[in-house]
Amino acid sequence: MLVARCRGDGEVIGIVPVRPRCHSLEFRMGPLGSPGWKLPVVQVLGSVPLLQEQRGLLDAVVQALFAHFPEARGLSLQAVPSELFGQFGQLDGMGVSVLDGWRECHTLPLPENFDAYLQKLSSKKRYNIQRQVRQLAAEAGEIEVVRIERPEQVAPMFDALRALMPATEFAAFPAQFKFERLAACGLLFSCMIRCAGVPVGVVVGSNGIGRWMIHNIVSDGKYQHLSAGTSTMHLALKEMMAAHALAEADFGYGTPNRDFRSSHELRTRGHVLVWRRAGLTPAVLACNVLYGKLYDYLASSVKRLKKRVNAWRARRKA
């Protein structure tokens, strides 16, 4: 945790939580895999430093981070709003890149209560969601909604996740004790849906101070024909809005499907990397970008060639 203070009166003017890690710059090789270059970075938790608006403060904070972590070649900011990008391009002696380009994050503005939220939906959409919930209850059993916010509730949530997620995905899931620590700090906002006592869906989220940060939506695959994922999110949202004052739900990167585009707001964000101009880092980043463009061009060329060959074969056969 980097804390910035005024030299005069000691007033706190900035807080920047960070953690050192490695970012992998992948070089895709199709069926041969994707070898990567491990770039040591300092990840800024929360994506944007919490700083007062003072000239030179951001530059001083960035210089202090690089001085404290001399092995780091860059600062990783995972979800920077596009409107804040300009301030990172003016840092002294630093370059800046947007990894994987700008992407859309979808958020759901929330009114004062759940009934007001339902009124924002079309009558057809309200009917469909309520019908899906009724069908789920009829087939799977009586529905129970449980908020997961205390440390002792984390173990049952993990049992449900283990049962609902593919083994490979669950193996890559963060450790249970991390969620117990989040709950102890009042930062865990998750919800579990049970039918006849058996978990059928889990929404893993965290407290963003008036914002519900959605990380995972997991549902039982055998109820996919009943849109169990949609019902899980609907019931969890109803429960969380009744318990907490929420201004919005933030679903992160992705594009909502057709059913939700009318109610969701898209916001442009990007994974920003601030890097030192000295050393090999600029050359490695440039090679990675160039390689990615060349790979995409060759892949699209091969697809076009295959399409032409298949069309020629079809004409010849005819």
Rank of each mutant, 00 (worst) to 15 (best):
M1T: 15
M1I: 14
V3C: 05
R5F: 12
C6V: 10
R7P: 07
R7G: 12
E11M: 14
V12N: 01
G14N: 01
G14D: 04
V18N: 00
R19T: 14
R19P: 05
R19K: 15
P20M: 07
C22F: 15
C22L: 13
S24D: 09
F27L: 08
P31F: 15
P31E: 13
P35L: 04
G36Q: 06
W37P: 04
W37E: 04
P40G: 01
P40S: 10
V42N: 02
V42D: 04
V44R: 01
G46D: 09
S47L: 07
P49Q: 08
P49F: 01
L57H: 03
D59L: 14
G74H: 05
S76T: 13
L77I: 00
V80M: 05
S82Q: 12
L84M: 02
F85T: 11
F85P: 05
G86N: 12
F88E: 03
G89C: 10
L91K: 01
D92W: 14
D92V: 12
V96H: 11
V98G: 07
L99R: 10
G101K: 02
W102D: 00
E104A: 15
E104F: 09
C105N: 11
H106I: 03
T107L: 08
P111Q: 15
D115I: 10
D115Y: 08
L118A: 05
Q119Y: 13
K124Y: 13
Q130H: 12
V133M: 09
Q135G: 07
Q135H: 11
A140F: 09
A140C: 00
A140W: 02
E142G: 04
E144S: 05
V145T: 11
V145D: 00
V146W: 13
R147M: 08
E149K: 02
R150K: 06
P151E: 07
P151Q: 00
Q153A: 13
Q153P: 01
P156A: 12
P156S: 10
P156E: 11
F158G: 03
D159F: 06
D159H: 11
L161N: 02
R162Y: 15
A163M: 06
E169T: 15
F170N: 03
A171P: 05
E180A: 14
A184I: 10
C185S: 10
L188F: 03
F189K: 13
G197L: 07
G197N: 04
V202P: 02
I209H: 15
R211K: 07
M213F: 05
I217F: 06
V218Q: 00
K222C: 06
Y223W: 15
H225Y: 14
S227M: 08
S231W: 14
L237A: 06
E239P: 04
M240Y: 10
M240C: 04
A245G: 09
A245W: 07
A245M: 13
E248R: 13
A249D: 02
D250N: 09
G254M: 03
T255G: 09
R258T: 11
R261M: 04
S262I: 14
S262R: 08
S263M: 01
T268K: 07
R269L: 06
H271P: 01
L273T: 08
V274E: 01
W275E: 05
R277H: 09
G279D: 03
L280N: 07
P282A: 07
V284C: 04
V289M: 09
L290P: 03
L290I: 10
L294M: 12
N310I: 12
N310A: 09
R316F: 07
A318E: 14
A318R: 15
